[in-house]
Simulated scan of single mutants.
Amino acid sequence: MAADAEGNDLGAVALPLTGHVGIAPSGTTVPTSSEGANPALTIPGLRKLGLLTTDGGPDWTTEPSGDPIEFWQDGYSIPSGLANATLAVVLAQTDPLSRELTSGKVPDANGMIDVDAGGHTNRYFLWTEEVFKNGATRRRAAPNAGVQTVKVQKSERGTVNGIEITFKVDRSPSINNTHFREWMIDAIATVAPAVTAATPEGALESETVTVTGTGFIGTTGVTVGGDPATSFSVVSGTSLTFVMPAGIAGSAPIVVTNDAGSSSPFTYTRGA
């Protein structure tokens, strides 16, 4: 949708649907501009933090700190150059990775950790990816981050016992002494999709199938044996899900289509 005469564009409204947050070892190379815009991008050594709570998605804070530098001439000042940059997320999973982040240590074979509430000094490469309803994707890479605060939320019956983690993001010479690198990737497809896998095999009508491959940003349709999927959802440029439509059991090639074209038929067998 194009902007109207007042500059209002509903298609540019960012309504988050899904995404992920991950960490990689300190020193991981930050993607270049073109690498970060590639839907098929993978970050070596990235470990995703799993499910987040409904209200615990990536919460970035970027604000200048310190008083501006004033000059004798009235009306002239420059920022101090100091900044407070953080990322807060609320993890829904209590697993070895979340516990490692909170303590800086890996649980032993018995699941035990000696926790020092004073924190730890481990450094991480941070990666966030957010997919919006309009098909756009926002990616951010922060190569110099550490855990600032940890709060395990109060245990209440019937609610997720989330783990709120705030990362302090510092400047890095690898990205020109800035805090993080950001990409905003439009939903417009520039290459046709390619399907490399679909699971589970033999899905029945109304069951959900996960498809992996490339070029899924901007997907406009999914067919199974020529039948349109009941519904589909783009998770990322390399992953989407669809609901199996009604159809005859047996060979039913999967085809994914976007504005740039259609994938080659991927061999798939529909369940009886």
Rank of each mutant, 00 (worst) to 15 (best):
H120S: 11
T121M: 14
T121K: 13
N122P: 14
N122D: 15
R123E: 11
R123N: 09
R123F: 08
Y124T: 10
Y124G: 08
Y124H: 14
Y124R: 14
Y124N: 08
F125T: 07
F125M: 13
L126E: 03
L126W: 00
L126R: 06
W127V: 06
W127G: 00
W127S: 02
W127I: 02
W127Y: 13
W127F: 11
W127K: 00
T128K: 02
E129G: 00
E129R: 00
E130Y: 03
V131K: 00
K133T: 00
K133E: 03
N134R: 07
N134A: 06
N134F: 01
G135Y: 08
G135S: 10
G135F: 04
G135I: 05
A136G: 07
A136P: 02
A136S: 08
T137F: 06
T137I: 13
R139L: 04
R140S: 04
R140L: 03
A141W: 01
A141Y: 04
A141E: 06
A141L: 02
A142G: 11
A142Y: 04
P143K: 14
N144A: 12
A145Y: 09
A145Q: 10
A145D: 08
G146T: 09
V147D: 04
V147T: 03
V147H: 05
Q148W: 10
T149Y: 15
T149M: 15
T149Q: 14
V150R: 14
